[in-house]
Each structure stands twice: as structure tokens, then as C-alpha cells.
Design a protein around this nucleic acid. Structure first.
Lengths: 218, 218
DNA sequence: TAGATTGTTAATCGATTAACAATC
DNA sequence: TAGATTGTTAATCGATTAACAATC
């Protein structure tokens, strides 16, 4: 049986995306969120390109695969595009995350709205230092790491953030994995080993700096 | 004239690298630096692949383009490979950087050794808050932003780090650009506009989190 | 209408992957 | 020798780029 009727939606949104396009869409979403905060109502593919360093034609092609979101001569509606990409990435809902490490880095992460902007809510903060347990960290109270399994289950937490010195990072990651976390977000530079069904993402600002410096020097 | 003599070095290291390979090499360097800290003497392409999420064959191909660095059946010497990649990226030297923002985030960055590991030294910290100017931040004293032009010139600074809230980010970036900085490293989530000869790198941890979550949910 | 920007095509380039000989 | 891992090839896939018609 051959169906020759034209499909109005080029790529069905039900298929799993490739790694490249998923990463780029997340990046566009970050720029759009910031543009909205800055009071922008519309944005062009060239502007998104400036902020993401992704080719403007690539951006238009990425988006047009899911529908006709832009207006020729005008650009894209910031609000509408945020909604579309959230649907594509299935990240429209709210997600609870737990943070381990109530030092300066942990406090900085807790008070930043990087995560909140995308529907991630820091539900709990834990620290191995008994002197810190019980003290306030913003609107939250610092908990004992022993409570992690209960917290993760009760709050249905998928993501754990590691904000401790490199020496303690592996131990904290192990605790988080035992507690049931599926994605570990590592702010310590350390290399972390986890079981194959858990994903680690390590932020490495120095990597981008090395990269930028290479092109400045070369 | 046709030269048929075999060239022992496939790709001369004097040519400018493409963006893809330069970014990957910087990433390998970060992993190698951490592996060295963890006391590892050798590492295989598969291990680097685990930590970077870059295909192991791709890693071997990237490296073999510059020489024969590995030992078959063994892997790569961590120390030797760090030296080789530093030479390829021309980042073997020491670079001074200036940080603006002495809040919790700025303090966390200043006390972290992410940058120090790669030869970046935070030479000065500035903050617009008069109450903070003059106070100690680690081994440094917080300076007034008005001093930035002099500091940048005296210390031959190329990189400026923005560690202030989103609302103040553009102003701080403008100050840094006026002071002569060529690369702006933006830790506030805000979108920053700079002249075309200046590069901005914005860290966006939430982007990676959205990406990881997509593959977890899909 | 004129200017701007999207949506889309086609052609090129680089990345990915599997496979395997070389060799430690 | 046996096992492991590199270096390298070839084939496929996705990204990039230029160009331009469509249309706001």
C-alpha cells in the first residue's frame, strides 16, 4: 500500500531526536528564555546564531522540521518558540533536583535562577559537614546526606547536583546513585564513575576558555 | 615540481585547526588533567571516550593526526599527552585573567582550581559594591572597577570573567571591553552584546541538563 | 512596493561508525 | 603466545554553507 497524500508535518515529533539537534534545541531555548527576560517579543535566526554560535541556516532548518514557527520578514515570536521547543524536548513540566554541597559554590547555585528558568526546582540541599546540617541556605534547610534516599523517593528526584571539592566528588556521586538519582550533574572538575544506567555531566568552563584562547592566539 | 617523499607528520601543527577538533582537544586536555590528579599514568581512548562522550575512534584519529602518541595494547601516557595537546593548542604558557563580582559565585570561582589547572591565574577581582572594595577574597584584595583599564594593561590580561547577577552583566561586560579584554567569560545567564572583535562565552549548565533529561525521558 | 527574513534545496565538508591489520 | 589497544581505511551519516524563491 502506497500513501501519496502529502504529510503537513515534515518530521513527526514522536520520534527520538539525534544528539546534535537535541543539544542545539536546548541551547536555543536558553537564549529564548534570556531574550524573554530582556523583554524581547521577537527574535531572528541571525540573532540566535550570534548568541549560540550555531549557523543561522541550521537554526531555521532545525525549527522548520517541526512546523512553521517563524514569520518571514519578522522572525520568531519568543513566547511561541519557547512553548514549541519545550514540547519538542518534552521538558514543559516541573522537575525536582537535589543539591549536595552547601559551600560557596552550592550556595551560588542555589540562589541562581539558571535552573529555575527551565522548570528545575532545587527541592533539597545536603552537606556532609555536621556543622552545616540544620542551617538555612536560602529558603531551604541543609539536610544530612543519610536522608538522600528518602528525599529522592518522596520528591521523585531524577537529577542530583554535585557541588563539593574534587576530592569528595566520587563519594557524593556514589551516595546520589545509591539514593536513586539517574542524572548526576558534576560541578567539581573531578572524573566520576557511575553505573551504565546513570548519566554524568561535568561542567568544564576551562575547556571553553582553552578553546576561545586558541582562536584568539592562532 | 612534484615531491613524492613520504611526510612523517601527516598534518603540520602550524595550520589553524577547525572548530570541532579544537573543542575536542580542549576537552581531552581537561580529562587528562583530572586523570593526572587522580594519579593515573596511562589512559585509553575508550576511557577518554567515557568521560567526554566523544567516540573512541574519533579520539584516536584526532590525536594520530599530530603524531604517534599512543602505545598499542597500553594506551596513552597521561603526562606526555597533556604536553602534546598543550603544544597543539598553544596554551602551554601562563595567562592572567580578571574576575568581576565578589559575591558567592565570584568567591567560588576564585577558590576553585578549574582555571589554575590549565595555567589560568586569577590576577585581580573587582566589584562595584563600595562595601566590598578593599576586603580580602582569598589571597586577593577586591578592587574598584574603575581600576580595570590599568589592571588589564599592567597584567596583560586577555580574559575577563563576569560573575555578577544577570541585571548587571551587560554593564560589567562593557567595562571589561573598554578596559581592553578580548574574551568575556559570562557566568550570568544573561545575553551579552559585545563588539565583533571580542568573543563572549556564556556558561549554560541548564542547557546540558535539558539535554540529559530529554534522553532520559525519551 | 521595498526590505527583510523565513523555509528549502543542493552541494560540500566534517563526524561517526565498523572493521581490521599492526604492534605493544 | 595471547590479549588488548592503537592507527588507519572506507563507507555512512549529519552539519555546514551558499543561494534563492516565498512571503511577511
Amino acid at each position: 500500500m502506497v500513501v501519496t497524500v502529502d504529510d503537513p508535518v515534515p518530521t513527526p515529533a514522536t520520534e527520538r531526536l539525534g544528539g546534535g539537534i537535541a543539544a542545539r534545541l536546548a541551547h536555543y531555548l536558553q537564549v529564548l528564555t534570556q531574550a524573554k527576560k530582556a523583554g524581547r517579543s521577537h527574535i531572528t535566526s541571525h540573532e540566535i546564531s550570534e548568541y549560540t554560535h550555531v549557523n543561522a541556516t541550521q537554526i531555521r532548518r532545525d525549527l522548520s522540521g517541526f512546523g512553521t514557527f517563524g514569520k518571514r520578514g519578522v522572525g520568531y515570536s519568543v513566547d511561541a518558540l519557547i512553548g514549541e521547543i519545550r514540547q519538542i524536548l518534552r521538558t514543559a513540566g516541573q522537575h525536582n533536583i537535589v543539591l549536595v554541597g552547601a559551600g560557596r559554590l552550592g550556595q551560588a547555585i542555589a540562589e541562581a535562577d539558571v535552573f529555575a528558568d527551565h522548570g528545575f526546582s532545587i527541592t533539597a540541599i545536603a552537606d556532609a559537614d555536621p556543622a552545616k546540617v540544620g542551617s538555612a541556605c536560602g529558603p531551604l534547610v541543609v539536610r544530612d546526606p543519610d536522608e538522600l534516599p528518602r528525599i529522592v523517593e518522596e520528591e521523585q528526584i531524577i537529577v542530583g547536583v554535585v557541588a563539593v571539592p574534587a576530592e569528595a566528588a566520587q563519594d557524593v556521586a556514589d551516595q546520589l546513585v545509591r539514593a536513586g538519582v539517574r542524572i548526576v550533574f558534576n560541578y567539581s572538575g573531578a572524573l566520576i564513575d557511575v553505573p551504565p544506567d546513570v548519566t554524568v555531566h561535568t561542567t568544564s568552563p576551562a575547556v571553553e576558555l582553552l578553546y576561545a584562547l586558541y582562536f584568539h592566539l592562532a
